[in-house]
Computed example of a mutant assay.
Amino acid sequence: MKLVRTEDAVGQVLCHDITQIIKGVTKDAVFRKGHVVTEKDIPVLLSVGKDHLYIWEKEEGMLHEDEAAQILYDICGNTFMHPSEIKEGKIELIADCDGLLKVDTEKLNRINSLGEMMIASRHGNFPVKAGDKIAGTRIIPLVIEAEKMEHAKKVGGGVPVFGILPFIKKRAGLVITGNEVFHGRIRDTFSPVIEEKLAEYQVDIVGKEISDDQPERITECIQKLLGQGADLILCTGGMSVDPDDRTPLAIRNTGAEIVSYGAPVLPGAMFLLAYYGEDRIPVMGLPGCVMYARRTIFDLVLPRVMAGEILEKKDLDILGEGGLCLSCPVCTFPNCGFGK
């Protein structure tokens, strides 16, 4: 950096904050380090006693924080998102649509380990809405070696750190099981819960079937809804290991491929996920906890299904850490540790 007369500093980059103190009014930085001095800034700088300024000298092989910040955004940014204005080496990523946030965690960690730059984000595999802040990035020093930013680009490998999978409109079919509901002994209280959760997405319910506990009947109900054009099947109840809980058998008998029966999540350990046919139509078996617990494994899996992801068993197997809902008196999900 070098010292110059303030009147000669137009177009130069400040190397430090300039503080303005007005008794009883303000004590704050009127200009931040990295600010590019303009003609209209000169009277303000003189009014705070700055006859001379320390400015950044352009050096071969060095980048200003804002130049480097743009490179960092290029490493992170993807379709369905846009950058905020660059300020003091900082850029935020903003979602352009509702969808599922995807994060390349390994790449994120590798870039953060390089030093002098940082990326902080939301957790991946959770929903975001248009206008939501996805991540914030920053170059730490005022200037950074161009070589270091080139290395960061190599780590990025040309594939963005973040992505958004827009939610897909689906047609859902509900199969409510249980002799007690089928014979009218009790009221169906499961459907309203499922319908409320589906209402958060673009879902049309094409039909609802109520079945007794006979697996043949449950299988028929699933196939009927598939015939009506359902591309998402949700079966409620009959998911435990009790001899008379036959929903898993009924789902298997449709010819659907079982991905997993059971998951390391509480509530929701008896959850079942399967896919039917060449179109890989999701078929879920929802245990009773989905009806009475505020948040369960269904809340973790549904957004990914609505984004069109085809989940594998390993996607469920890794949910154990963070898979314990604490049933807080006031639920703040997803702003909590559940699923993370």
Rank of each mutant, 00 (worst) to 15 (best):
L165G: 09
M284Y: 02
G49W: 06
I42Y: 11
Y292D: 08
I168K: 11
L72M: 14
S84R: 11
L316R: 10
L63M: 14
I297T: 11
C235D: 02
L53D: 00
G262Q: 08
P282L: 03
V301N: 08
M239R: 09
G227K: 01
E7P: 08
I91H: 11
M1E: 09
E59A: 01
D279C: 04
C328W: 06
D28L: 00
M62V: 00
G131A: 10
L302S: 03
K148W: 11
I194Q: 05
G337V: 09
P192C: 06
V305K: 02
T177E: 04
Y276C: 10
Y54I: 04
L93P: 10
R187D: 14
V206D: 08
V48I: 07
K197G: 00
I144A: 03
V128I: 05
P215F: 01
Y73I: 03
I75A: 05
V193M: 04
D96Q: 06
I71M: 10
W56E: 13
C76K: 06
F298M: 05
D212E: 03
M291N: 14
V30T: 12
E145S: 15
E65Q: 15
M62N: 14
I21V: 15
P127E: 10
D188F: 02
D315S: 02
K90N: 14
G157F: 03
R138D: 06
V193E: 12
L302N: 00
G207L: 05
L302H: 07
D96L: 02
V155L: 09
D96M: 09
G323I: 01
P141E: 02
I210W: 09
V159P: 06
A152R: 07
D244V: 13
V4Q: 09
G163S: 13
M239F: 05
K133R: 13
H52G: 09
N78T: 01
I75V: 14
G255Y: 08
